[in-house]
Design a protein around this nucleic acid. Structure first.
Length: 594
RNA sequence: GGCGUUGUAGCUCAGUUGGUUAGAGCGCCGCCCUGUCACGGCGGAGGUCGAGGGUUCGAGCCCCUUCAACGUCGCCA
């Protein structure tokens, strides 16, 4: 290498370097070979610089002719202004080019299976198999850098607010509630298993008992459940816990965290305070405990309009009062949809769990299968409460309260999607508070916790604790963005006896409590401070910040929807000797498996 | 586990009512080209039509089974 040359990156070739000799290295982004002259676009993590290979440089020219996409080269050359009229305004380095004097091929690349030089959509399996090539592309470079900046800003924010980062172990005890655990067999202890943490929940609470005061961690969490676009077997939370605080304190800190992240990492100002909705209100207006507030189209209760209706289906539902809902949902512009379209919409509603979907269309006349049942008074009332206009359709969902809300909420999101109202460049945050403490498990009918069993109820409900547990509200708060739950938190029970009472409500006897949570209930007896916290799903935060629709696009090495790493091919069988050492025998292997 | 969509060249896709030898663009290989920047021109190679079975004189196309990817429901304290 020329010792007199200055090392620069492919993103920093500027006119200030004119006439100096520089060294730069990178990947061959593109080669434009004109026969008598060759242009190389050289790329590294900072940008692209054009290299000029002149025919007078005989040896360099001969080597450049052999270059192919993604070969790795080092160039020594002089920075020169591009001839007038040949500047490239789309490149930050487009005013200059490097006239190559030396060219060293550092590595040859095999022909890439897909183009690295653009962000065209490629089958995701292929992207993941060759993830190192995908990571070179602009999209993943940008996403991972955004991810870094968001995490960096959050770490700094919590540091400035007196939090310290504490690492918690990955090999912990299985506590078989909630999600399925990933298990790790113990070699030393035959037949025993560690679990990988679904979250550091109990550990961070014990850190509070340990006097840490303000804890945060960029924490990896592992749950053995089926992946989705917004769920991975392993994912990252920014996990927070605080002592001697109340719900409002945690919400203020976390609100500040996301607003700071958007401002300092993304350059976007989010108006504060963030809107707050009660759980009841969210379900009533949006049919969802994570409402997408980028658009209106709110759910409208119309049961009272049908109290004396000749449409008996609705009248019967309305007669059941508060246990049921009849919801009207405006679908702007849908009056022109065909019968087929509405049939498809009804199918969709049934997929969402609806028993049926009634609808009318608004125009000079009100039409639709149920129109003939509607009195003039009902028609007027419906138009008034929904605000529907000519050209709209109105959908009706009538069912038990929770089912109707849920179906209508899903339909609302679907309509918002169809109408293009879910603009990824808009960020509509909100808090949802006042969740129930307990709920019915729809399968067993038993009482289960709505969030987790360590959540404290709102104070002042003692009178109902035993008589009507389902009426209890929790000190539990969710942060929601654009219809995604970004994070969930609560004030925790810090009284050992009360925590035990909660466990009893959930059907655990003292022996089970001792076996599963004994270490924790014991810790609570030694002066646990009042405490609470929250965790934000970083992958979802960054996904939305990047305008992506899958968290796989903001994770360097994600699993596919079958929980498989297709680059490494994991999971994979292991040698019998390893199994033996772990005291494991495989009881059955399906014959079609490899 | 259920449902939906998709599966054709390395990549992105087209392929009519079932009908001769399955196509395009990009990429790849060769030749030409001195100011391009998605350089251009000429030529060429490249296919288990996801897999298996069936119907048919004949299947990329129709039927059955199956696999995979993505989306979704269940699931995700």
């Amino acid at each position: 290498m020329n010792s007199a040359s200055q090392r620069i990156s492919c993103g920093t070739a500027t006119p200030s370097l004119l006439a100096s000799t520089v060294t730069l290295a990178g990947w061959v982004h593109r080669r434009r070979d004109h026969g008598g002259i060759i242009f190389l676009d050289l790329r590294d993590h900072e940008g692209i610089t054009q290299i000029l290979i002149a025919p007078t440089q005989v040896e360099v020219f001969a080597q450049a002719e052999s270059l192919r996409s993604e070969d790795v080269v080092r160039i020594v050359g002089r920075v020169q202004a591009r001839p007038a009229g040949t500047e490239n305004e789309r490149l930050s380095t487009g005013a200059v080019e490097i006239a190559a004097e030396q060219l060293t091929v550092l590595t040859r690349s095999a022909t890439p299976p897909f183009p690295v030089a653009n962000d065209d959509d490629i089958d995701e399996t292929v992207r993941l198999r060759y993830r190192y090539l995908d990571l070179r592309r602009t999209r993943m470079q940008r996403n991972l850098r955004t991810r870094h900046r968001v995490i960096k800003v959050l770490r700094d924010y919590f540091d400035q607010h007196g939090f310290i980062e504490v690492e918690t172990p990955l090999l912990i005890k299985s506590t078989p509630e909630g999600a399925r655990d990933y298990l790790v067999p113990s070699r030393i202890h035959q037949g025993e298993f560690y679990a990988l943490p679904q979250s550091p929940q109990l550990l961070k609470q014990i850190l509070m008992i340990g006097g840490i005061g303000r804890y945060m961690q960029i924490a990896r969490c592992l749950r053995d459940e089926d992946p989705r676009a917004d769920r991975q077997p392993e994912f990252t939370q920014i996990d927070v816990e605080m002592s001697f605080i109340e719900q409002e304190d945690v919400m203020q800190i976390m609100e500040g965290a996301v607003v700071t992240a958007w401002r300092d990492a993304l350059g976007i100002d989010i108006p504060t305070p963030l809107p707050r909705l009660s759980y009841e209100e969210a379900m009533r207006r949006f049919g969802n405990d994570k409402p997408d507030l980028r658009f209106g189209l709110e759910l409208v209760d119309v049961a009272e309009l049908f109290a004396d209706s000749s449409f008996t289906t609705f009248r019967d539902v309305a007669a059941q009062g508060a246990a049921t809902r009849i919801i009207a949902l405006r679908y702007p512009g849908a009056a022109s949809l065909s019968r087929r379209d509405f049939d498809a919409l009804q199918e969709r509603a049934k997929e969402f769990g609806a028993k049926g979907l009634a609808y009318i269309t608004i125009g000079p006349e009100i039409r639709g299968p149920i129109a003939k049942f509607l009195s003039e008074q009902e028609r007027t009332g419906i138009l008034a409460v929904t605000g529907a206009e000519d050209g709209d359709a109105i959908l009706f969902i009538a069912d038990r309260k929770n089912a109707a809300s849920d179906v209508a909420g899903r339909l609302r999101n679907e309509i918002g999607e169809r109408l293009g109202l879910r603009d990824p460049a808009r960020f509509a945050f909100c808090w949802v508070v006042g969740f129930p403490l307990f709920e019915h498990d729809p399968e067993t009918g038993a009482i289960t916790f709505a969030h987790h069993p360590f959540t404290a109820p709102l104070p002042g409900q003692e009178a109902h604790f035993d008589s009507d547990p389902l009426s209890l509200r929790a000190q539990h708060y969710d942060l929601v963005l654009n219809g995604f739950e970004l994070g969930s938190g609560s004030i925790r029970n810090h009284d050992a006896a009360f925590q035990r009472k909660i466990f009893h409500h959930l059907g655990l006897d003292d022996t089970e409590i001792e076996n599963r949570f004994g270490f924790f209930t014991t810790a609570l007896t030694y002066g646990a401070p009042p405490h609470g916290g929250m965790a934000l799903g970083i992958d979802r935060v960054v996904m939305l910040a990047c305008g992506e629709t899958s968290i796989r696009d903001v994770i360097a090495f994600p699993k596919n929807q079958n929980a498989r790493d297709v680059m490494m091919d994991a999971p994979s069988p292991i040698p019998a000797a390893n199994l033996k050492e772990l005291h494991i025998t495989i009881s059955e292997v399906q014959p079609d498996q490899k």
